[in-house]
């Protein structure tokens, strides 16, 4: 059943609506069912979650009798952004994931953020699906703030992702959806995978398999599930960053999610005007390239790769 979570009137004959679809067991609700919430589309240029929302519901509907809890699917927390290929909230140019928990009395973005938080609150788990940005490709991973790791790592291991990154706490991240929900006791897992403005079907299928496995663990699904992958789990100290030292056009020499050794050639930054190589980039460590530059134009400082030692 499609429900409207928040609605704001737009000036010229339009309403902005944040919608969710709720799937409940065939035989109705007893009141004791647990609820899983799938949210995505906070950033309008991240689309990997769109396919996950569809595919999850398609598979549930194929075996509806196996559903034993509530599944809420929120495919577009920032509908104006998705529609206009805008990462932030159009007209305000704000990053929606820096506005939570929002405020009932605030401006439109803050008001919507507060409505979303109150609607998601109380879920047994929330999966907040992100898709990097247009610049970087990411392997399927869960990102967890170290403050919540005890609660979240056991849930994250069910999600069939390749990697769990436990990152350090930063005050600025306290304005994210995930932090705001975790702090009020609603366990929320942030998934990052793929690249902005694209859908990587195999990653989407991999995550949907994992969501079923988590649903079974929570008592929301009693159908068949896969055995989730054993993810690599690491903390910040094991991740090294490679940033561009020069501007130019980056052409990679490695593949994403492959092993590299210290000194291996990661790629070149080229100058199309002069035909010269501005910079040759080598790995400073042995490890796996789990983030790789996708968008070729780089400035000094642009992130080229992250390597997990």
């Amino acid at each position: 059943m499609v429900q409207v979570v928040a609605s704001v009137g737009l000036p010229i004959d339009e309403s902005l609506m944040i919608k969710k679809n709720r799937l409940v067991p065939e035989n109705g609700l007893s009141g004791n069912e647990k609820r899983i919430s799938i949210v995505t589309g906070t950033h309008g240029d991240e689309l990997e979650g769109q396919y996950v929302c569809y595919e999850l519901q398609r598979r549930i509907k194929e075996n509806y009798s196996r559903l034993t809890g509530i599944v809420d699917v929120y495919p577009a927390l920032n509908p104006l952004g998705i529609d206009s290929i805008t990462r932030g909230i159009p007209a305000f140019d704000l990053d929606m994931n820096r506005l939570f928990p929002g405020s009932e009395n605030g401006s439109m973005p803050e008001y919507i953020a507060s409505k979303i938080i109150s609607d998601l609150s109380g879920s047994a788990a929330v999966i907040d699906i992100h898709a990097s940005n247009i610049f970087l490709e990411e392997i399927p991973q869960v990102r967890i703030n170290e403050l919540s790791k005890e609660t979240l790592i056991p849930l994250a291991k069910k999600l069939n992702m390749d990697y769990i990154w436990v990152h350090s706490a930063a005050t600025v991240l306290e304005s994210t959806l995930a932090y705001s929900l975790n702090v009020i006791g609603t366990p929320t897992l942030v998934v990052e995978m793929g690249v902005g403005m694209r859908i990587t079907k195999k990653y989407g299928d991999q995550l949907v398999d994992g969501i079923f496995s988590l649903m079974k663990e929570l008592g929301i699904w009693n159908g068949e599930i896969i055995t989730p992958k054993e993810p690599i789990i690491s903390e910040d100290g094991e991740v090294s960053f490679i940033n561009a030292g020069n501007s130019g056009v980056f052409v990679p020499a490695v593949e994403h999610w492959k092993n590299v050794k210290k000194g291996d050639h990661i790629g070149d930054i080229l100058d199309p005007l002069t035909g010269e190589i501005n910079e040759t980039i080598h790995s400073e460590t042995d490890g796996i390239v789990f983030t790789l530059r996708e968008y070729p134009i780089v400035s000094e400082g642009s992130l080229i790769a992250r390597i997990l030692s």
């Binding site: 704001v8 009137g9 737009l10 000036p11 902005l16 007209a91 401006s107 439109m108 008001y111």
Partner: peptide, 8 residues
């Protein structure tokens, strides 16, 4: 000049 509902 044009305004969303619920705006301060």
């Amino acid at each position: 000049p044009v305004i969303y509902s619920n705006t301060p």
